[in-house]
Design a protein around this nucleic acid. Structure first.
Length: 427
RNA sequence: GGAGAGGUGUCCGAGUGGCUUAAGGAGCACGCUUGGAAAGCGUGUGUACGUCAAAAGCGUACCGAGGGUUCGAAUCCCUCUCUCUCCGCCA
């Protein structure tokens, strides 16, 4: 959520940059104008009601004094004055509540302002290739098969059992498949720890305040599984519980950077997704992911974003997977993000790129909702910057690993992963 | 799930309708003192919004959250929430 202060001071810039998200200039202008008009009214209301409250506070004290002195009549006169001012206060405050609600609704529906480097564009076709694949794309023999056949052949994942137990999109890993999954999780957590991230095991369900804090609500309401009876949401990513550690927290400048990591399953409803794009592990309702989160000083957050990019890149190199890095265009950029880089790995049997990581800088968009602040050198409150990235999302990594490394003898495990799997080949 | 007790500032803790501008203590910061430190003494010590060019200042709100009663609420009433103790259930 952008602050009203920022909006007031950066109207033209906002109109310009939000157009990158394919919003119409006139609509943005109108929204901003409405917001500022409402804010003017809010200020005016507050000035008026503060003044009346002040008068009433003074009168209340005086009444007490008059009673003590036995001057009942004078007290009664004052009481009537207070009562008449109360009507005014009530209508003022009623109006103020309405104004604030209207402002809040508009602010919640205003997306983050994209970074200047974000290219204009509508869909993922318009994303900019920030770094093309540094290695040649693997070419598989003619008898190569997609991962959904491989997992069956080697008994690694049973999708049908998942359907039996739960439903479509809830894969069941078994044997070496389960072990491979756990090995990847362990490797990613170790790598994150080596890079200075503190490991967190967070709750897998969050309350409404947390979902709101990181921006899943109200924007992505339908994406989350919701337990009505307890009013809790299953997390769609570890970002939600981990970032919310710092909701309503005031940091010191010396606390930066805060680096956290955590493995969690992620639950996504993915309502309406069907067809061959979602086959096998390409899109599931439950998948494992190791997330990295950083809370950083605004002046350093873009350097930090690059560091996180390097970390994710290092993981993919260790796994010997062909990858490329995209800079998301305005149309594909998440609601809460200012700049996002996606990592895609090439899944050679499907002959397609799969998104395995998304690394974003949210600047102050989340921290404004979270009330995550720090004191600067002048002891003034400032909003911190939040960043996060997948490092990495497991299901699609498994798909690419299986497909790219298939041989007639079996599936080769990359060397860096072997100490975690305990085997070098799945056969 | 049942019964009871609680939630006050950075922390401890007083406060059952106006003398609270939230006592007192601890911590922290700065100053005095000192060869240096401790002790001692003094001063300061939250957040949000408004006002102001800005700072200072001033005003308003905030004692778990939200409502209500009252001229006036940390204090009384209602709802919710969290914590603790006991019982029940339980990996």
């Amino acid at each position: 959520m952008l602050t009203i202060k920022f909006i007031r001071e950066n109207q033209e810039l906002l109109v310009k940059r939000l157009q990158v998200r394919n919003l119409k200039a006139e609509e943005i202008e109108e929204n901003l104008k409405t917001l500022i008009t409402l804010d003017d009214e809010r200020r005016d209301n507050q000035t008026q009601s503060d003044q009346i409250l002040s008068e009433n506070n003074k009168a209340a004290k005086l009444i007490g004094q008059l009673y003590k002195e036995g001057k009942r009549d004078e007290a009664e006169v004052l009481k009537n004055e207070v009562a008449s001012r109360k009507d005014k206060i009530n209508s003022l405050q009623e109006r103020q509540t309405a104004v604030q609600e209207e402002m809040q609704a508009l602010l919640l529906n205003l997306p983050n302002m994209p970074h200047p480097s974000v290219p204009a564009g509508n869909t993922d076709d318009d994303n900019e290739v920030f770094k093309p694949c540094p290695t040649a794309l693997p070419v598989l023999p003619d008898n190569a098969v997609p991962h959904w056949d491989l997992v069956q052949k080697y008994n690694l994942i049973d999708f049908e059992l998942g359907v039996k137990i739960t439903g479509a999109g809830f894969p069941l890993f078994r044997g070496k498949g389960a072990r491979l999954e756990r090995a990847l999780i362990n490797m990613f957590l170790d790598e994150a720890a080596d890079a200075g991230f503190e490991e967190i095991v967070p709750p897998l369900m969050v309350n409404e305040a947390s979902a709101r804090g990181t921006g899943q609500l109200p924007d992505k309401e339908g994406q989350m599984y919701y337990m009505e009876k307890d009013d809790l949401y299953l997390i769609p990513t570890a970002e939600v519980p981990i970032t919310n550690i710092y909701r309503d927290v005031i940091l010191d400048e010396k606390d930066f950077p805060i680096k956290l990591t955590g493995y969690t399953p992620c639950f996504r409803r993915e309502a309406g997704a069907h067809g061959k794009d979602v086959r096998g592990l390409n899109r599931v309702h439950q998948f494992d992911k190791v997330e990295i989160v950083q809370i950083e000083h605004p002046s350093k957050s873009y350097d930090t974003l690059m560091e996180m990019l390097n970390h994710v890149e290092g993981l993919l190199q260790k796994l010997e997977l062909p990858y490329r890095i995209l800079r998301l265009c305005g149309g594909d950029l998440g609601f809460t993000s200012a700049l996002t880089f996606d990592f895609e790995v090439y899944s050679a049997a499907q002959k397609r790129w799969l998104e395995v990581s998304s690394v974003s800088n949210f600047e102050t968009f989340q921290s404004n909702r979270l009330k995550l602040r720090y004191r600067d050198e002048n002891k003034k409150m400032q909003l911190a910057h939040t960043l996060n990235g997948s490092a990495l999302a497991l299901a699609r990594i498994v798909a690419a690993l299986l497909e790219n490394n298939q041989t007639d003898e079996g599936i080769k495990i990359p060397e860096a992963l072997q100490k975690y799997t305990g085997f070098a080949m799945i056969s």
